[in-house]
């Protein structure tokens, strides 16, 4: 074998030596080991999810087979063979609507103020730190807040309703819960917009609002949108705050036929899907095991559909913009 010499003088190396150096150690153990460990953790968490899903789907199977869609479309009933979850689905959807209306504009506006307008002073830093703290407060605490402020103080005390345990009170409670997270996700979306883009806009004589409106928000909006929907999805599955803020805790309630939607929201009793799950899971009759599983499946399907829809919508949004 011909040995070619590379370089010259005393530091000359043969091509073989160079090849050996470039090829590195033959057995590299660390890298595959790290990769394997990471893969195992990923598979473990996926496995847990699959087992959980499999468990609820299997348990709920009998109900779907016997009852079909009526489990979804029936009203609550004290008799397990007739009961359904439509009131819970309606309640959850309406709660989400209230949360969107209240927390989205407030949260986005607060984040825009903090990121784009507020000077970096000590006061701003204290504010931001406390918003982060608020996002970490357990949801049951927000439930207590909702009960004392919205149910008792505002609706029963100031508005004078007989019972303040209405959907609007629950919606306001959940809004409080997600507001801080909404602010934080929006702040992060705004922070990801490059400073060079703002400079370009200010550089041609745009005002702060023109800069935000025409350049910063369009770039940040897919991330704001995704973050908001994921936050709302979290609120959709919350039960603890609603237990306190007055969602109905019974296997049966009904508003009179033909009640307008405004009174359903403002003054009638309400329930939500997570509350129905909680409720049914505590019933002694064996029928409720399958019913509970069916309600969980319904909740998961709604969440999955919403999340998938969000991702598709975000991709569409991003494609419509010119990069």
């Amino acid at each position: 074998m011909a040995t070619r010499t590379i370089g010259s003088g005393s530091t000359a190396v043969t091509q073989d030596m160079l090849r050996r150096a470039l090829e590195g150690r033959k057995v590299n153990v660390i890298n595959p080991l790290v990769a394997l460990t990471l893969l195992i953790s990923l598979l473990a968490s996926l496995a847990i999810l699959v087992v959980l899903l499999w468990d609820v789907v299997a348990k709920s199977m009998p109900v779907w087979q016997e009852r079909g869609w009526s489990v979804i479309t029936n009203d609550l009933s004290p008799r397990p063979e007739e009961t359904g979850m439509v009131q819970g689905i309606f309640g959850s959807v309406m709660l989400t609507v209230v949360v969107v209306i209240l927390s989205f504009p407030l949260g986005v506006a607060a984040a825009i103020y903090l990121e784009e307008y507020a000077r970096d002073t000590r006061l701003t830093r204290i504010l931001v730190a406390n918003i982060r703290n608020l996002a970490g407060v357990p949801s049951i605490v927000y439930g207590l807040l909702g009960l004392t402020v919205f149910v008792k103080l505002i609706l029963e005390g100031m508005v004078g309703q007989l019972s303040g345990r209405t959907l609007i009170a629950g919606g306001m409670t959940l809004s409080m819960l997600v507001l801080a997270i909404m602010v934080i996700t929006t702040q992060e979306a705004l922070r990801a917009v490059p400073m060079a883009l703002r400079e370009a806009s200010y550089g041609v004589g745009a005002t702060p609002w023109q800069t935000i409106r025409h350049h910063v928000l369009p770039v940040a909006s897919p991330a704001i949108f995704t973050g908001s929907v994921l936050t709302l999805a979290r609120a959709f599955g919350e039960s603890a705050p609603l237990l306190l803020a007055g969602a109905v805790l019974s296997t049966f309630f009904a508003a009179p036929e033909g009640t307008p939607i405004t009174s359903l929201v403002m003054s009638e009793k309400y329930t939500a899907l997570p509350i129905i799950i909680y409720n049914w899971s505590r019933q002694p009759q064996t029928e409720y095991i399958a019913l509970t599983a069916a309600a969980i499946v319904a909740l998961l399907v709604i969440l999955l559909v919403v999340n998938a829809g969000t991702i598709l919508a975000r991709d569409a949004l991003e494609r419509r913009r010119i990069r």
Binding site: L197, E199, A200, V204, G205
Partner: peptide, 18 residues
């Protein structure tokens, strides 16, 4: 804002609007 309408700027890294 009025100053920048009269005194424009070009930056180190090209930064056209997207």
């Amino acid at each position: 804002v009025e100053v920048r309408r009269r005194v424009g700027m070009v930056f180190q890294k090209p930064n056209p609007f997207p």
